[in-house]
Every structure is written in C-alpha cells, then in structure tokens.
Amino acid sequence: MKQLQEKAKQRQLGDSLIIKTAVRLMVPFIQLFGLYVIVHGHYSPGGGFQGGVILGASFILLALAFDMKTSFKHMSEKVNAILGNLGAAIFIGVGLICALVGGLFLDYSALNIIIPLGPVEWRSFGIFLVEVGVGLAVMSIMVLLYWNISSSGKMDEGL
C-alpha cells in the first residue's frame, strides 16, 4: 500500500489532466441536476434528501479530483456551516411559524393567513419549503463529513 502511494505521488497519478478537465466540466451540471431534483420532487422521483446528496457529491468530487483547497475555494468552511444551520432552521422555522399564526406545528395550511393562496396550495408550497431546508442541511453535512473524515480533522490536504 505504501509503495503504491509513493508511486502515485511520484508520477502524480492523482493529478491527471483528463480527470481535472472532466470534473471541471461536470461539476456545474451536477449542481444544476441536484437543484432540479430538489425542486422537481413534487412531480418526479426526488426531493430534499436525494438532491442534497447530489449537491454534496459535486463538492466532494471537486475535493477528490483536485485537492481540498480547491473545494474550499468554491465553498468555504464558514459558508458550509451557515448553510447547514440555515437548512435545519428553515425546517423548524416553517413549523414554528405555522404554530405562531394559529395552526398546529408543521400544519402548512395555517400559513394561508399570511398570504392567501388557499390552504391546499399552501400545503404543497410548505412541502417545497421544507424540502429546500432538508436539501441544504443534507448537502452541508455530507460535505462536512467528507472533509473531516478524509483529512482526519486537520482540514488541510485530504486524500
């Protein structure tokens, strides 16, 4: 194993031009597809969890093909933490607002008092809000897990 690692380091097997170019071309499309999966969860297979994992995988792919510095350039640790907290906060915040305006906790039809769209439409839209929150949280946590585990907590080089 160690010999293989040294060989890879000498010949720079991980720094192939083909892989780097392909990843650079692919990452925007992967992110677009992740957003599509989150937003289109009402009508096709998809939703917050799946789309969040795809979005997180795009950043993990950057960190795998280049190095961890490159993925920090695209999404820094601070932004990642903010997005993760925001995702969980959106979910719980939507539920709390429902309770504050007079309905039950997480009963989205109560939000009809704020903007009158109709209670059924609000239930559909409330599911969308919640999915966005779940997607953000899952993306952030997946990227966080990869960063921490692959660099054993040092957050400098990674694999």
Partner: peptide
C-alpha cells in the same frame, strides 16, 4: 396536498415531524 408524488407528500406533510427530527 396537490402533490402527485405520494412519497414526497407523506414525507413532507403527513409525517413532517418524522422528517424534522431526521434532519
């Protein structure tokens, strides 16, 4: 709920509590 994907409807609306604590 006006959501044709039943999995999303159950996940986000009927069992929202479950999903919240899962997050």
């Amino acid at each position: 709920t006006h959501v044709p994907n039943l999995v999303t409807a159950v996940l986000g609306d009927y069992r929202g509590y479950d999903t919240m604590f899962e997050t």
